[in-house]
Write a protein that binds this DNA or RNA. Structure first.
Lengths: 237, 237
DNA sequence: TCACACACGTGAGTC
DNA sequence: TGACTCACGTGTGTG
């Protein structure tokens, strides 16, 4: 913890004091009401808001900005550290492991887990009774593309595939691998797709919502008209 | 980037200069040979090592320490940031996502992946043809315990279970759940174990090596004596 | 202009 | 003692 007589703001304060611009407070600070609260409702706290805004000298403004900056930076640090603490609880390490080692563990763990989930040969491809959508982001390839896996499980219908292809086309996603398994009128689609890195986040998000609407369209269609589709397994690679 | 006329070391430098202790260099720094190299062979770089170590005044020592400190801190930052960059490539985000958002994504992703790997009902528990050991660290519970999963797949033998129990007892691991599946003379053991948080990392490591030696013991035993064990599935919960 | 994110150098604490 | 980590306030760049 920084003591109260710390040299923070030293240059500005010294300059301002030497030029007799204002009377400094007991800690070298001008008396200034802090409206900062611990409530999360207001993300931004303007220290002078609502109080004496009238006749603010440029020096006052600079000081207020500095104070604001200082507090914002503190909030930023707290945000980062809170996530690090979450990761500490998510991984096998005590609360005292340092940031670098923690992040090294996280990298290793994410790689492990990704490898594990990718090594599920049969189970993931089998159609289940419940509707599912998963869009799993993968690693970035060296040429700036993002490769990810999308899985969709729902009632089978004849125009599902054209709809799916339309979605992929409109999102400029390149299908590297497609696996389709149907059984008992249900279908599971597992796609390995490549997206431009620049729009990867948006693509993943858009694909997820597009698949959701696709699934809702399937559910809203008349169930009584359900055709019996021949069970088959199709892998395009 | 900090400009050369930055006020860094201002207090110390001013103090030293005002007391005429040394002649400052062109940037306010005393002329000092930096032996810092970019080679990774020497992790620590002592700026005055190998040069004029004789007649070091206390001020020189303080300055050298400060310089050392500054450089060490820079290395620390670089280490942390390099791990963050790795995570950026591991996740679906471009290189410009800020630290806090990146870490938020990482937390979310690790949770996703952990949930996925835990939801593999049949495949993971089925004995495979090859020997396997996996010790997967899990989340820390609120009371400071680390819960993790250990999986062992090898040839079945009558004294495997006693050996396993012995290992768990010696490592002070509490078995919360044990699942055993045998088929064709092979066995898969999946254990959910709790370890004290203080020794969690060591426990995970020790368990891994203990299981490895257990597996080697199985392999070195005479294969011709292999009994035919009745296939069964046993779940203790 | 200003809110935000980052790197930096530094004081403090820990082992 | 010194090597190490961390929080802090600050300067700077960006949108």
């Amino acid at each position: 913890m920084q003591p109260d007589n710390s040299p923070e703001n030293s240059h500005l304060y010294r300059f301002l004091a030497e030029n007799g611009v204002f009377n400094v407070g007991p800690y070298g600070f001008p008396a200034m009401q802090s409206l900062c609260s611990s409530s999360s409702s207001s993300y931004h706290n303007y220290p002078l808001e609502g109080s004496v805004i009238t006749d603010m000298t440029p020096q006052d403004r600079a000081l207020a900005a500095l104070k604001n900056h200082k507090e914002a930076e503190k909030r930023r640090r707290e945000r980062i550290n809170s996530h690090l603490d979450k990761l500490r609880n998510l991984l096998p390490c005590n609360s005292k492991t340092d940031k670098a080692s923690l992040l090294a563990k996280v990298v290793q763990r994410v790689r492990e887990l990704k490898q594990q989930t990718s090594q599920i040969p049969g189970l993931e491809t089998f159609p289940s009774e419940t509707d599912e959508i998963t869009v799993l982001s993968g690693e970035c390839s060296s040429d700036g593309q993002l490769i990810f896996k999308a899985s969709l499980c729902c009632e089978d219908r004849s125009d599902l595939l054209p709809d799916l292809i339309e979605i992929l086309k409109s999102l400029h996603l390149k299908t590297l691998r497609a696996e389709m398994v149907t059984i008992g009128g249900r279908i599971r689609n597992v796609l390995i797709v490549a997206a431009e890195k620049d729009h990867s986040i948006e693509s993943v998000h858009f694909l997820q919502t597009a698949l959701k609407s696709l699934l809702e369209r399937s559910n809203s269609s008349d169930r009584s008209k359900r055709r019996r589709v021949l069970d088959h397994k199709l892998i395009i690679q």
